[in-house]
Amino acid sequence: MDTSDGKTIAPRITAYATGTLDEALQRLHGFGPERLGRLTNHAPMAVEALAARGQAPGVHRWLDLYAGKLEDFPSRVEPINAADRRGALGDPRRAADWIDHFTRALAVRPWRDVLAEWWPRLLPGMYGGSTHPVIRVGHAVRTLLAGEHTEARLTELAHSLGYWAARHHPVSVHRSALPYGVGTAPAAVALDAVVPIAERDGGFPTRLGRVAELPVWADAVTDPETVRARLAELVRAATHRYATHGHGEETMLVHAATAPNAVLRTLPALPHELWAPSLQAAWTASAAVTAMYAPDEPVPYVPPGTITPEEVAERALAHGDEHVIKLTDTALDFADEPALAAALRAIEISAPLR
């Protein structure tokens, strides 16, 4: 697949070590999507990324290390019904109810139909849960697009969509058309034009509430293949940017790349009419995270040397941090020099899983 700058993205994953991945997902589905009432369970995303990148032999060992961050599946309140949906949307207390709802839906309808129905409903609220719900959906959809619709993978999609519905959180951000043409500029230029918020204390929800204005970018794009190309360009630019800007907040700035990449990975499963609004939601997420966590100054770029993509994946597994694993997974979608440098930078500045 080509991007708008003529560069080619590395081939998407087309096969998994199915047994290991499904075993890991089954092992995880007895646990909830969060812990401590606010922190995301990253394990389903990380094990999918490891399996996709040839690291399946280390998946269960990694899970053993991560097990202390897992909490039991949450309590149910009452089943979601048509009359209740609007009130239950965005209510984290209803996470189990939403997961049950999508489990029932996926048991009787094709997964693409369920996704197409709910994607436009959920897309405006992709900023809840620090964008983790949409990222988890992107990982789940990638497994299904690989061609094996196993029970574990469909259950994972139900958990992912249920988590998104429970953490659904829209934002209202003014779009400013800047005088020097950011709207049609390369994605890297657009990200450079994002103005950091003035007060950069507090967690993700607090900072998100302070993002009042973002530049317009790619808002006139409607052709599906151009949408795909611009979205891929955005993911690449955000990934490359991490190599020099990741120190602003080594964990949260990962999402400037992984959130739009989740949308990019989902596009092939969606009707074309949903692609353009998906691009705009992904841009808002990436730009907002940039505004919330960008450092005052970049650091010099450090080339990755002669390391191979396979070696980078191995280093990410050895390091173990879930955000390192997920950024590396996104970087390996491109596997160019700046993307590998970004993955190595994440490994360098992030605390390892112990």
Results as ranks from 00 to 15, higher is better:
residue 189 V to K: 13
residue 247 H to D: 11
residue 271 P to F: 00
residue 147 G to R: 06
residue 133 P to G: 01
residue 136 R to D: 08
residue 43 A to W: 06
residue 298 P to T: 01
residue 195 V to Y: 01
residue 238 A to L: 07
residue 231 L to R: 10
residue 65 L to G: 12
residue 206 T to N: 01
residue 233 E to I: 02
residue 176 S to V: 15
residue 283 W to M: 01
residue 318 A to S: 11
residue 31 F to D: 07
residue 172 S to E: 10
residue 210 R to S: 10
residue 258 T to S: 15
residue 184 T to Q: 08
residue 174 H to T: 10
residue 120 P to C: 10
residue 3 T to G: 09
residue 305 G to D: 09
residue 264 L to Q: 13
residue 130 S to L: 08
residue 227 V to M: 04
residue 79 P to F: 03
residue 269 A to I: 15
residue 27 R to N: 14
residue 91 D to A: 12
residue 335 A to Q: 02
residue 238 A to T: 11
residue 165 A to V: 04
residue 128 G to T: 06
residue 231 L to F: 12
residue 8 T to N: 05
residue 281 A to E: 10
residue 83 A to Q: 13
residue 231 L to A: 11
residue 40 T to W: 04
residue 20 T to C: 14
residue 240 H to E: 14
residue 49 A to K: 06
residue 282 A to E: 06
residue 254 V to W: 07
residue 114 V to S: 11
residue 263 V to C: 14
residue 141 V to E: 08
residue 187 A to S: 13
residue 256 A to Y: 05
residue 253 L to R: 14
residue 178 L to G: 03
residue 19 G to H: 06
residue 206 T to V: 14
residue 256 A to Q: 15
residue 278 S to M: 10
residue 55 Q to D: 02
residue 274 L to D: 15
residue 182 V to N: 09
residue 224 P to C: 07
residue 73 F to N: 06
residue 326 K to G: 01
residue 81 N to Y: 07
residue 38 R to K: 12
residue 185 A to N: 09
residue 292 M to T: 05
residue 170 P to K: 04
residue 259 A to H: 04
residue 215 P to I: 10
residue 65 L to M: 10
residue 30 G to H: 14
residue 327 L to Y: 11
residue 105 A to W: 03
residue 310 E to Y: 00
residue 215 P to F: 10
residue 118 W to K: 03
residue 131 T to D: 02
residue 302 V to T: 09
residue 39 L to S: 11
residue 231 L to T: 11
residue 66 Y to C: 09
residue 327 L to K: 07
residue 207 R to Q: 08
residue 69 K to G: 12
residue 194 V to S: 11
residue 111 W to P: 02
residue 275 W to D: 09
residue 70 L to H: 07
residue 164 W to S: 02
residue 329 D to I: 00
residue 297 E to G: 01
residue 148 E to W: 00
residue 166 A to Y: 03
residue 179 P to A: 03
residue 120 P to R: 13
residue 88 A to I: 00
residue 339 A to V: 04
residue 74 P to E: 11
residue 230 R to M: 03
residue 141 V to T: 07
residue 299 V to D: 05
residue 2 D to Y: 13
